[in-house]
Design a binder for these strands. Structure first.
Lengths: 344, 344
DNA sequence: TTGTAAGCGTTATCAG
DNA sequence: CTGATAACGCTTACAA
């Protein structure tokens, strides 16, 4: 705005030709004399001409922009996903617009409005913890609007999803703890309305069952906020009875795991000898805390790439196949560090 | 797109009135009969009418969107700044579009192109470490385009800036180390082309001088990458000679400080007794590492708010005053934790 | 090989 | 109180 940007009209006027000719020359349309083409391109360059994307969007009802709705950019995992998305988007001539919801449904609904108003071509969504009603997405999908859900999957029919194998990840983590000789393992669970939380909990249960360890409901504790303080408080209480004390934790995220470790240290337990810990997501800081925290790693960048690819396919084809409901599941890894290594 | 979104025309046709009337009715223009107004609004609601932002942008050469150019969203500090920006923007009816450069000038230049093409109303910039030539910003400013630089300030005349008082922050940090009895303090410095790096270094120098501690050039080490590995390697080498061993570090960011602590621990030094550390930025993880890291805290959210406010003033006024060159400086704090507490 | 005109959705201007 | 028209910048039949 107010940029005095040169337009096609300006070029046309200056060269005494019509705007359509300029438009065609600029895009190497067939049937334009070499001469005009060169003149036009030269002047365009000189005037620093940039096509007006807004006019283009209006004309084509297509913005070459994809929207990403995420809870929080601070979240290490999400920020790596973003990088993956951008990589694929830019490589295909698409821009990315990020809409942060701060885990707030109202913001999320507003974001969908923005999407509609701005002719965004498609949407990648990881919805907020608060979201339980998916109407705002459903409405878009009814119009055959391209949406790919990633990480957090909705309770909706016929969606295209990308997620990681949370169940197996959790299972591997807890199995590892058991192999290290821990038997009294508590679970700090995520918000119950997220499928990832449920999957992680079930991976935990499966590993215990397989090992013949009885399940204690009071050792499965929800940590909805996911702050270190929350889990520290919870764990302090839990660890205070020497006679009935857990000896390890599997947390649905690294922050909660770190909080649990703080609690254990505060009580004077030796880590990892007397108390083991495994987290989820493998945040940047996890290798830096004491002792370094074992964690289930998620391929964030890959998830971003995959989700963006699927979305672009939907946008480009606009045909049925690309819209077929499916869930791409990416593998998790287990990064073993000192916090869970009691043997060797 | 393909959203079958209702337009003003649709409403007009359905009610057998002109689009201008509909437009006016929708915006409560004076001189529209109550009757028509109600009819229009009712139908608009029923059809789920949303104004087409793209058409609006084209019409008004104004998008009600501000752009934010940042190096990386993963960076804890930047992600808090973003939240501050969004808060102010949304409150004033502006959308935010995020452009991540990954510390890469080419991306940055492409981002500026996107800004121009999309009629973004103004720009908040924290440029990449690679950027030394500011022509791409200068060009915009020549056209009186609203730009506010935050955190990293350019070497350009007449810019509007928001930054934190890095100099005082660094000074306070090093002074604190000296007060704790450390005297052989090294400095892990940031990229030399960033003013923030220079300011932090100078704060360090000032504190040493004031205390009469001689400055050793070989103890001021650049850590351009800012990974924990980088600083760990550097510090391992530095700490390897017992006869001439530093006893503390002031790092220009927390990651580097954490790396230094790793190196010290690996060599068997006791922290904080034999080696103290203070970082910069107060990342989330800093309180969780062992020992918890002291750090200079930056008011990221506040910085985002301030920068956005200044930008909106520039956009709204389009008059001179708002464009007056100036630098808003926000205060830093010092969060003292165990890593630098040798006394009491 | 080039030009004309219509249209994407909206609003400002001028008429009625 | 309401309508017609033009314009924002661009593309694309259709015409010449």
């Amino acid at each position: 705005m107010k940029l005095g940007q040169a337009t096609i009209k300006d070029i046309a006027k200056a060269l005494n030709i019509s705007s359509s000719t300029v438009s065609r020359a600029l895009k190497d349309y067939p049937g334009i004399s070499k001469e005009t083409k060169e003149k036009v391109k030269a002047l365009a360059k000189k005037l620093n001409y940039r096509p007006n994307a807004v006019a283009l969007s209006l004309r084509k009802s297509k913005s070459s922009t994809i929207g990403v709705i995420i809870p929080e950019v601070v979240h290490f995992f999400f920020s790596t996903v973003i990088s993956g998305i951008e990589e694929v988007a830019y490589a295909n001539g698409y821009n990315v617009i990020l809409l942060q919801t701060n885990e707030n449904v109202t913001r999320e609904i507003a974001a969908v409005d923005t999407i509609i108003s701005n002719q965004i071509d498609g949407l990648l969504v990881s919805f907020s913890k608060e979201t339980s009603d998916f109407d705002h997405f459903k409405k878009l999908m009814d119009y055959h609007y391209p949406i790919v859900f990633f990480d957090r999957l909705p309770n909706l029919p016929d969606t295209v999803n990308v997620t990681v194998d949370d169940h197996t990840g959790a299972y591997k983590a807890v199995k590892h703890l058991i192999e290290q000789g821990y038997t009294k393992i508590i679970h700090l669970a995520g918000p119950e309305n997220l499928k990832i939380s449920i999957d992680r909990k079930e991976g935990y249960l499966k590993a215990l069952q397989e090992a013949g360890i009885p399940i204690r409901e009071d050792w499965i504790i929800p940590c909805p906020k996911g702050t270190p303080e929350e889990s520290e408080t919870i764990c302090r209480a839990l660890l205070s009875h020497p006679s009935d004390r857990p000896d390890a934790v599997f947390a649905s995220n690294d922050i909660a795991a770190a909080g649990a470790m703080q609690a254990a240290k505060a009580i004077g337990l030796k880590l990892p000898e007397e108390f083991g810990a495994v987290g989820f997501s493998d945040w940047q800081f996890s290798s830096m805390i004491a002792p370094p925290l074992s964690s289930v790693s998620q391929p964030g960048f890959k998830m971003g790439e995959k989700a963006a690819q699927l979305l672009l396919e939907m946008i480009d084809s606009e045909h049925e196949e690309a819209f077929t409901a499916r869930t791409e599941m990416l593998e998790t890894g287990l990064v073993i560090r000192k916090s869970s290594l009691r043997k060797g």
